[in-house]
Design a protein around this nucleic acid. Structure first.
Length: 109
DNA sequence: CAGTTGACGGCCC
DNA sequence: GGGGCCGCCAACT
């Protein structure tokens, strides 16, 4: 619950034109093993207008299959609207578009 | 009320 | 280098 708040806070901080991975969000939220919890937190997504869950992708830079929250590949269009390159398969080039914040942080436990 | 699973990732073998 | 197992919190059955 409090963990969810931290996770949402991190996701809200993702700048436009950048994406973050689940593990990255988990690390910034305070515990890198929360990757699974991050997925669930975004699953409930209580405030989808302020929580850009479409900017969160998995470690491979791929959007999740169960991501059809608004309908089909709408998240891909949202990402492209942010200026992010997304392949038709829903793959994002993390080398170019991954959010820099937190990458230099190691352990926060 | 208790067990299992889930938008994943890291670490061990 | 690849495959499998474990972990963390909350919701669902």
């Amino acid at each position: 619950m409090n963990s969810f708040r931290l996770i949402y806070d991190v996701v809200k901080r993702i700048p436009r034109g950048k994406v973050a991975t689940y593990g990255q969000v988990a690390r910034l939220a305070g515990n890198r093993r929360w990757s699974r919890v991050v997925g669930f937190a975004l699953h409930v997504n209580p405030d989808e207008e302020n929580i850009p869950c479409y900017r969160v992708v998995n470690r491979e830079g791929r959007v999740s299959e169960a991501f059809a929250f608004g309908g089909g590949n709408r998240q891909i269009e949202l990402l492209r609207a942010d200026g992010i390159e997304v392949s038709d398969e829903g793959i994002v080039n993390l080398e170019k578009f991954q959010w820099e914040e937190g990458l230099y942080l190691y352990e926060m436990e």
